[in-house]
Simulated scan of single mutants.
Amino acid sequence: MNRLKQYTIMNKALALLSLLFVFSFTSCEDVVNLDLDAGETKLVIDAEIIWKKGTTGNEQTIKISKTAPYYSTSTPKVSGAQVRVENSSGNVFTFNETEAGVYVCTDFVPVIGMEYKLFVQAEGQTFTASEKLTSVTPITKIEQALVPDFGGGEDVIEVTFYYNDPADQQNFYLTDYRSEFLIFPEYENTDDELYNGNEIKARYSHEDMMPGNTLDITHRGISKNFFNYMKLILDASNSNPFSVPPGNIRGNIVNTADSKNYAMGYFRLCEADVVSYLVK
């Protein structure tokens, strides 16, 4: 009788544990929205002047928005701002608003090595930033190979592009990859500390990359300061700058009247080589 009683107690205990186990799995399917405190709203100035090889570089775009709560599905656009860029020769390039938060200049003149200064007046505040236009060496060739998937899956396609690093200077590069199989671009930061003056090759692979896909490669020359800024972002977000880093990473855009009320973003000027590669 005692033995039967023990079995009954054990069976009830196992049943209870099984039930809790099932509940734990079903509860994982529920979406839990945490009640997060909203941080201070800040201006976001996306100011990349990018001179693509083979173009005049006369049309450039700067976007201005605001930070939004974590669960927000939209980004507040900032209209009515005054945006201009001046170069060290005194030339002024005005950016006019073409749609909410989008400011376009159609007569920009890019000059390698020249310093440019950004001026933004928005919502009663004035912001400035300075940077030089950095050159880039062109992509010389692109190769494709099938390589093992170290995760244990099927072999994956790997695309490799090459460029020659100048020997007489320290260089920094930022490359982004875009394709129909990517929701967001993927970025890679590179410097020439170990490869100065040599041919550099950059490899890219993705498990969803298939023959027939077009891989758009944008290879930029960037400044050392912007390289360090992007390194912080990519290290904090696992190479996806569109994810949320654990804290604010400040760029070079400052508020002229209140240093604490800075804008997010980085004013940078890059020459870039852009290649569209058809995956075989």
Rank of each mutant, 00 (worst) to 15 (best):
T41Y: 05
T41F: 05
K42N: 03
K42R: 15
K42V: 03
L43Y: 04
L43G: 00
V44N: 11
I45T: 04
I45V: 12
D46F: 04
D46K: 10
A47P: 12
I50N: 12
W51R: 08
W51S: 08
K52A: 14
K52Q: 12
K53A: 13
K53F: 06
T55R: 01
T55L: 01
T56A: 12
T56D: 13
T56F: 07
G57V: 06
N58L: 08
N58F: 06
N58Q: 12
E59Y: 05
Q60R: 06
T61R: 11
I62N: 00
I64P: 00
S65C: 06
K66R: 13
A68N: 09
A68F: 04
A68P: 00
A68L: 04
A68E: 06
Y71H: 08
S72G: 14
S72R: 07
S72P: 06
T73M: 10
T75Q: 15
P76W: 07
P76N: 07
P76V: 10
P76Y: 10
K77E: 10
K77D: 03
S79P: 07
S79V: 07
A81K: 09
A81G: 03
A81C: 10
Q82W: 06
Q82L: 09
V83I: 13
V83R: 01
R84A: 07
V85D: 03
E86P: 05
N87K: 06
S88F: 05
S88H: 08
S88I: 05
S89V: 04
S89G: 15
G90R: 05
N91V: 07
V92T: 14
F93D: 02
T94H: 07
T94C: 01
T94P: 04
F95G: 01
N96K: 13
N96F: 07
E97C: 07
T98H: 08
T98C: 07
A100K: 14
A100M: 11
G101E: 01
V102N: 12
Y103P: 03
Y103C: 06
V104G: 04
C105M: 08
C105P: 11
T106Y: 11
T106F: 03
T106G: 05
V109T: 15
V109Y: 07
P110V: 09
P110S: 11
P110C: 11
P110T: 13
V111L: 11
G113L: 05
M114N: 12
E115F: 13
Y116I: 04
K117S: 13
K117L: 06
L118P: 01
L118N: 02
L118D: 02
V120P: 10
V120T: 02
Q121S: 15
Q121G: 08
Q125E: 14
Q125T: 03
T128K: 14
T128I: 12
T128S: 11
T128H: 06
A129S: 02
T134V: 15
T134E: 14
T137L: 10
T137V: 12
T137N: 12
I139S: 03
I139V: 14
T140K: 13
T140H: 03
T140Y: 03
I142T: 11
I142W: 01
I142V: 15
E143S: 14
E143H: 09
Q144R: 08
A145M: 10
A145G: 10
V147A: 04
D149M: 08
D149S: 15
G151C: 01
G152K: 04
G152S: 04
G152E: 02
G152I: 02
G152M: 03
G153S: 03
G153M: 05
E154L: 09
D155W: 03
D155N: 15
V156E: 10
I157D: 00
I157E: 03
I157L: 15
